[in-house]
Amino acid sequence: MVGALGGFILAMGALRPIEPGVAELKRMRVHPTWQGRGFGRLILDHLEQRAIALGFHTLLLDTTPHQHAAIGLYRTRGFTQTGTGIVANQPSLFFQKQVAK
Score class of each variant (00 low, 15 high):
residue 1 M to H: 13
residue 1 M to K: 14
residue 2 V to N: 00
residue 4 A to L: 08
residue 5 L to H: 08
residue 6 G to C: 11
residue 6 G to S: 13
residue 7 G to P: 02
residue 7 G to K: 06
residue 10 L to W: 02
residue 10 L to P: 00
residue 11 A to R: 03
residue 13 G to K: 05
residue 15 L to V: 02
residue 16 R to S: 09
residue 22 V to T: 07
residue 22 V to Q: 05
residue 23 A to D: 04
residue 25 L to P: 09
residue 26 K to W: 07
residue 29 R to Y: 15
residue 30 V to N: 05
residue 31 H to C: 12
residue 31 H to F: 06
residue 33 T to A: 14
residue 34 W to Q: 01
residue 34 W to P: 00
residue 34 W to V: 00
residue 35 Q to K: 06
residue 35 Q to G: 06
residue 36 G to M: 12
residue 42 L to Q: 15
residue 43 I to C: 02
residue 46 H to Q: 15
residue 47 L to H: 06
residue 47 L to M: 08
residue 48 E to H: 06
residue 48 E to S: 06
residue 49 Q to H: 09
residue 49 Q to A: 10
residue 52 I to N: 14
residue 53 A to T: 10
residue 55 G to W: 10
residue 57 H to F: 11
residue 57 H to K: 12
residue 58 T to L: 12
residue 58 T to P: 04
residue 60 L to C: 01
residue 64 T to V: 15
residue 66 H to P: 06
residue 67 Q to Y: 02
residue 68 H to Q: 08
residue 69 A to L: 08
residue 70 A to M: 09
residue 71 I to V: 01
residue 72 G to R: 11
residue 72 G to E: 08
residue 73 L to R: 13
residue 74 Y to L: 05
residue 76 T to S: 15
residue 76 T to I: 12
residue 79 F to E: 07
residue 79 F to S: 06
residue 79 F to P: 03
residue 80 T to L: 11
residue 81 Q to H: 00
residue 83 G to L: 12
residue 83 G to Q: 10
residue 83 G to W: 11
residue 85 G to M: 09
residue 86 I to G: 05
residue 90 Q to W: 11
residue 94 F to S: 03
residue 97 K to N: 08
residue 97 K to H: 13
